[in-house]
Amino acid sequence: MNFAKELTKGLIKDNPIFVLVLGMCPTLAVTTSVINALGMGFAATFVLLCSNIIISLIKNITPSKIRIPVYIVVIAAFVSIVDMVMAAYLPALHKSLGLFIPLIVVNCIILGRAEAFASKNNVVMSIADALGMGLGFTLSLSLVGTVREIVGAGTWLGMRVTPLTYDPALIAILAPGAFITLGFLMALMNMLKEKK
């Protein structure tokens, strides 16, 4: 096991969204535009990084019986910090992510990595794991966000990218479009994997 391997596994091999199918709620809810997807991705990565560091540091002093509540407290604390800092300095993004910021607490990716990785490995490896997983999460979110924003609004990061004759298919940024876009993207990933 080395640092680089832990870092890259989250991107493709163990991609949290397309392979592990974790953290579905934010994946579908906040990917109406690329900017929201990036905001959610970075917020979750920050929480994942901090909680992985703390949890790998305290792994020897937490009795195993109460480890889950302790992890939840650590994660919830970092989520609240992100929530407050975002409300103060990025109010527009905070507003559009809304309920899904506090809900990072119950994002299975974060508790999952705490339990499966950080509680068994040292700090350096946990940092690599968090960065890899967080980056994989952010990139996948942006991919879904890109498809939905281009198809549904004809823009990318707010800039017009389609010819003016293209009439955006609004359905892509509404709820049904979220499910259908992710479904087809996942099928595409499966197809690519089979070809290999």
């Binding site: 499910f179 479904g183 996942m186 595409l188 197809m191 089979e194």
Partner: peptide, 22 residues
């Protein structure tokens, strides 16, 4: 189709259901 089995088809069905609920 093989690449659609499991999660992808479930998601697409959920999408159609969401459409119906619209």
């Amino acid at each position: 189709p093989k690449s659609m089995q499991g999660m992808p088809i479930a998601l697409i069905i959920a999408g159609i259901m969401a459409l119906a609920f619209y």
